[in-house]
Design a protein around this nucleic acid. Structure first.
Length: 473
RNA sequence: GGCGCUAUCGUCUAACGGUUAGGACGGAGCCCUCUCAAGGCUUAAAUAGGGGUUCGAUUCCCCUUAGCGCUACCA
């Protein structure tokens, strides 16, 4: 049984890199009918906040993929401590009484820090005595020093990995305030939750050697599988961060820009992974079916945005592809929500609404376009653009539009073809080109010079409103 | 500084030793057309540099360079 976990720490919004990690975990586990664990890694008291936990849920809920089991590390502290003390008991870890402030003075840039030999060699009696006296300490993992060996694991993406114990420092397991470090909490939980595949960002690739040491020391069973994902970076080549790159790094930004969750998921999947057969637009089903770690790349992927253009153009394109191909029935409720959020109430029944959505969607790339560019289809209060005004100001245009209104009113039939017939007949009788009347109609009905076929516009606005709007010009 | 990872068009990527180095986004142009999209077609655009191995390297090995990551009582 495959079990994976997504383990965000609540120290900010849901980062798009984290979102992609979540998605890859999800695709993998759904493909193999395993269990998805959501685990909140909240062991850093200083940086955690309830607000950021909520924003992570917000992002996850928007993606809409879901999970099967849920844990918070802060509820599992006893387990973490037990693992640390067990390692201490067995001599695989030791107490380090060095005050935290002294460690800051370490010459970081020159030689790497491995351990403090004095603390490492403290006898059990001394160590116990100082602890009993209330002196603060951290518990560190005792990495082999006398007989260095290669710590090895096989990464599903990066292949065989190894690192000499001589290059691994005696990392902390338990802080002096009694809280576990990331390394300890993560491994203790992965063991306890019987996680079989650890899928996470490549920034943890070198940490994995430490984790392997913990797993080997603390778990009876064999190592989980590891799969590290290439990082998402900005156009400047640096890791995406809110401070540097702004709101583009938060998934909710894309929700707020009117993205379809599927469109954005699809985009994220194509960053660092490909199905190898040139497919780009894919359904969740297709993504799940063909996802594999073999298809994951090893080099970082740039999210392509700029100040003028804050959304990756490919994301926008992919979204527009989904927007025009998903079933109207699935799209319509989302459009309705968007409209309502902008104070617009669509006309007519569901069938009519679906018809309108279906007609105009191929020109749009986000949900927001329905309430902005598509406003005239859902409200009588819409702006007339300057170019549209020009069309209306064409000689005789207004008068012809009023006549057209009369013709339409006189004709009981109201379909694309009946309107077209009425319009063309009127143009012919008046000795003007049909194009003039067609363009003027669109301008009058939508306030815009761009949009669907003019006759389709008539049916989307509806008979009564068409007559009204044509007369009003 | 040490260790680890990476390197194909501007961007996302394909090519698991032999291709005119393919596709997509974006750009340019053409067609279609009542407008705008969509769609179709065309086009510009890449193997970081240097050594090997090989009949033959984008592909395998080494070096250089560059970028990224880890080197915290952050995750």
């Amino acid at each position: 049984m495959i079990r994976v976990r997504f383990a965000p720490s609540p120290t900010g919004y849901l980062h798009i890199g984290s979102a992609r990690t979540f998605i890859f975990n999800w695709l993998f586990v759904r493909k193999h009918q395993g269990t998805m664990v959501l685990r909140i890694d909240d062991t850093d008291l200083d940086r955690n906040s309830e607000a950021s936990l909520n924003s992570i849920y917000e992002g996850l809920n928007w993606l809409g993929l879901g999970w099967d089991e849920f844990y918070r590390q802060s509820d599992r502290l006893d387990l973490h401590r037990k693992v640390a003390y067990d390692l201490l008991e067995r001599g695989l870890a030791y107490r380090d009484f060095t005050p935290a402030s002294d460690l800051d003075d370490r010459p970081h840039s020159e030689a790497q820090w491995l351990c403090n030999p004095e603390m490492r060699s403290l006898s059990k009696e001394q160590s116990d005595a100082r602890a009993a006296a209330g002196e603060p300490f951290v518990i560190r993992f005792r990495v082999e020093r006398d007989a260095p060996y290669e710590v090895e694991f096989h990464d599903q993406v990066y292949g065989p990995q190894s690192k000499l114990t001589a290059d691994i420092e005696d990392f902390a397991l338990l802080r002096s305030n009694g809280m576990p470090t990331y390394h300890l909490a993560s491994c203790a939980d992965d063991i306890d939750l019987r996680i079989t595949h650890i899928v996470r960002g490549q920034d943890h690739l070198s940490n994995t050697f430490k984790h392997v040491l913990i797993f080997q020391a603390a778990a009876e069973r064999s190592l989980p599988q590891f799969a590290h994902l290439p990082l998402l970076i900005g156009p400047d080549g640096s890791k995406l961060s809110k401070r540097r790159h702004g709101p583009v790094v938060s998934v909710t930004t894309y929700r707020d820009h009117g993205f379809l969750a599927l469109g954005y998921i699809n985009f994220l999947c194509l960053l660092g992974w490909s199905p190898k057969d040139n497919r780009e637009q894919m359904s969740l089903y297709e993504l799940t079916a063909c996802f594999s770690f073999e298809g994951v790349n090893r080099s970082n992927a740039v999210v392509n945005f700029s100040e003028e253009d804050p959304i990756d153009p490919k994301a926008l394109w992919l979204n527009s592809q989904h927007l025009r191909t998903i079933p109207v029935g699935a799209l319509a409720p989302l459009v309705r929500q968007t409209l309502e959020a902008h104070g617009l109430t669509p006309y007519g029944d569901d069938a009519f609404f679906n018809h309108v959505v279906d007609t105009i969607r191929s020109r749009f790339s986000t949900l927001l376009d329905f309430s902005s560019k598509g406003r005239a289809y859902f409200s009588d209060d819409y702006p007339i653009e300057p170019q549209a005004l020009e069309k209306l100001n064409a000689p005789g245009a207004r008068e012809l539009l009023r006549k057209l209104a009369d013709r339409i009113e006189a004709n009981p039939e109201f379909t694309e073809s009946s309107v077209e017939a009425d319009l063309r007949k009127l143009a012919e009788e008046s000795g003007v080109k049909a194009g003039l009347l067609i363009n003027a109609s669109r301008a009058a009905l939508t306030g815009q010079t761009v949009g669907p076929s003019a006759f389709a516009v008539f049916t989307c606005i509806g008979r009564e409103r068409v007559i009204q709007r044509l007369r009003k010009v």
